[in-house]
Amino acid sequence: MIRLSNVTWRYGSPTRRVAGGRSADPATALSGVTFSVPQGGFRWLLGPSGAGKSSLLRLLHLEALPQSGELEILGTHVGVDVKRATLARLRQRVGMVHQDFRLMPTLSISDNVALPLRLERRDEAAVADEVAAILRWVGLSERSGALPAELSGGEQQRAAIARAVIARPGVVLADEPTNALEESQSSRIVGMLREVSALGATVIVATHNDALVRRFPAPALRLERGRLTTDESSTP
């Protein structure tokens, strides 16, 4: 479950403020964003480049805290006074697929995928089983010993998804996961994310691939210049 209420966020110093209305301040990535997604919901996050899609996902992954407004993730209220340990625990329950994958370059694919489980200090036998199962699901069983640099873009994308979902997080966020992928690969990846949602996770996928959105119909959130212009889930 995700809930935002009048959330504003700008890059740089939180005290810096440029006088002027609406989107006059170029550093303001999000302003007055309000929406909520129920547990298990799937949302497309749409908008032109520079609209604030990545910024919103970073905020939901707690890579930054909102300067104003209310943010609630998985039942936890995230304010400026939230404890670091609370944020860390919450991050373990929010899986993020970055646009640039962020796989550890010196670790093999299986070690990369295993990281969330090892951070939870699961025992190694269980880790091995889970990693094997998830790599089978994303079709990377053969590449488990390879380094990220030895994988194609689509394979790295799938490895990043495997790592994001292996610990069964309550929220999964994906930033343009089909960028630079061919049509069949894109469908496969969106299919996986729909599966994760069906298993109970709240999933938000940022994209500007309209064909893909048409093929996988789901409520969309549309951002423009940091403002939420459409929330299809609120207008049934």
Partner: peptide, 16 residues
């Protein structure tokens, strides 16, 4: 540094 930030993003606490 990137690896350290990745671990942070995965929910590892600072001390760990």
């Amino acid at each position: 540094r990137e690896s350290i930030e990745i671990l942070h993003g995965l929910g590892a606490v600072d001390g760990y």
